[in-house]
Each structure stands twice: as structure tokens, then as C-alpha cells.
Computed example of a mutant assay.
Amino acid sequence: MSILNKLLKGVKSLTRVLVIEDDPIIGEMLILYLSEENFEVQRVESAREGRVALSAFDPDILLLDLMLPDASGIELCSDFRQLTAIPIIVISMKPSVTVRIQAISSGADDFLVKPFSMQELKVRMDAVLRRMSNPAITKPLAIQSVESQTVGVLQQQGLSLDLERRTIVLDGEHIETTFSEYEIMKLFYQYPNRVFSREELINAVRGIDSFINDRAIDVHVTNLRRKLEKNPKEPQFIKTVWGVGYKFIKA
């Protein structure tokens, strides 16, 4: 690929949406609606095609159906999360809490049950994209003012956060996290020993106009403990404050 082509590839006039959906009716509805809303949309029907499109199409956001002909949507979500930090919204016929928890635990940023309102989908897409482009948008002014003064790398207790690269390193090892997990950990890290309610964490991760509940926050915290703590059942970093929420312990 020439340098000119690379530069042109890097310029995105429209937000790119990759839709992995094998149902032709739902797939076409998504293409029509999102195209009218000024998104650039590519739809594929299988996990294999989705992996190719993730690299070739270079999307800004992914809509992932859980029922695919050649792979488990949950496993595919987990695979994609290892490859990219873009927002992933799962769409599924299965409304059960168990499936929602599995999807979020695998790296999804949001979950919609079919049939759903296209307007609601658009709102949720805008919310996760807004959070990705401006993580401080829904935080209290006191938090924003402190965060605006924080640049580079935060370090303590063998744990470091690179704010520019959005990475976490523990004892020299890079820790893979979802977008939501990183946002929660960054908030903890910048305000050690402060107790955050679940509602505050919800607002920090999503924004007050996007769907997420207390249970989803608990799942994210559980995943962070699994990745960061030597013994997740007896956490040293992220402590539960019963009846209130969570706090990060600074030594």
C-alpha cells in the first residue's frame, strides 16, 4: 500500500460501523437506517468475514449478533476485545440476564435485545462513541478539573496507567481490559481511597443517557480483580464498601 493510500485510509469522514449479522432482514434494516443517519456501514454474515472486515474496514464501532452460523457470538466478542478497543454493542434474541452478563464479561460495552428500536440503538451508539472520544464528558466538574491536570503515566504499587495509550501495566506485564474496565480503573486510580457508588461508576463509564445497571458494574469490577489481584477473593487493590460501592486502596 502506498503512503498516499495509507494517509487516505487514515482519514474517516464518517463514523464506520461494522455489523456482523446473518439475518438478512435485520441486516438490511440496520444498513438502511444507519446509512441515513450518516454512518458508513459494512455488514458481514459470519465470524470469519467479521475477522477479515475488522482489519480491512477498520470500524469505529461494532454491532455483533450472538447467533452466527460459524461461531459463538460470546467467544467472538472475547476474541475481538483482544484485538481492538472499539465499542462493541451486542444484539441478541436472548433476553436472559445470564446472556447479558456473559456478553459484558466477554468485553461488550452494551447489549440490545431483538426486536429493538433503531432510535434507541442510535442513542446507545452515540453514547459509547462519545465516551470513547471524550471520557471526561459525564464526570463531575471536580473530577474533570483534577483529571485535566493529569498527563502521562500514573504509577504506584507496581501498577501503572498510561493515559495517552490507554494501557494498564502490572509488575511489567500489560493487562488487557475492555473500554469500560479501563475507565473504571482510571477513576479509581486517580482518586485512591475515595468511595465510589455504583451510580457514580455508571455515569463515569457510560453517561447518564446510556443503559447500564448495577449488576454490570459488579461484573466489570469482578473482571478487574481477576486481572489485577493475586487473589481476587481477597482483593488488595479494589475493596468493596458494603452498602455503598467500591474504592481503590493506595498503600
Rank of each mutant, 00 (worst) to 15 (best):
T222Q: 12
F196L: 10
S133N: 14
K114M: 09
E21Y: 00
V99E: 14
F116Q: 07
R198G: 08
V221S: 04
C77G: 06
E45R: 10
E36I: 10
V241H: 06
E37Y: 00
E45H: 07
L121E: 01
Q236W: 07
V97M: 11
K114E: 10
V151C: 10
A136I: 12
E120K: 15
A56H: 04
L18C: 03
A103Y: 02
N231S: 11
Q156P: 06
Y33N: 02
L121T: 01
H220M: 03
R131I: 14
L63D: 02
Q157L: 08
I212K: 12
I101L: 13
G10N: 14
E199S: 14
S55C: 06
V219K: 04
Q149H: 13
P87N: 02
I137Y: 07
S105D: 11
E75Y: 08
S180L: 10
Y189C: 11
S148P: 06
F116N: 11
K94S: 12
N38M: 13
I3M: 15
A142K: 15
R100H: 03
V151P: 04
V205Y: 04
R48I: 08
K227W: 03
G27S: 02
I212C: 14
L228S: 07
E176P: 10
D65T: 05
V151M: 12
I86F: 01
T150P: 05
T84K: 03
K122N: 04
I202H: 04
I89M: 05
M132R: 15
V19R: 01
V17E: 03
V52K: 05
G50L: 00
S106G: 03
R206L: 11
A216P: 03
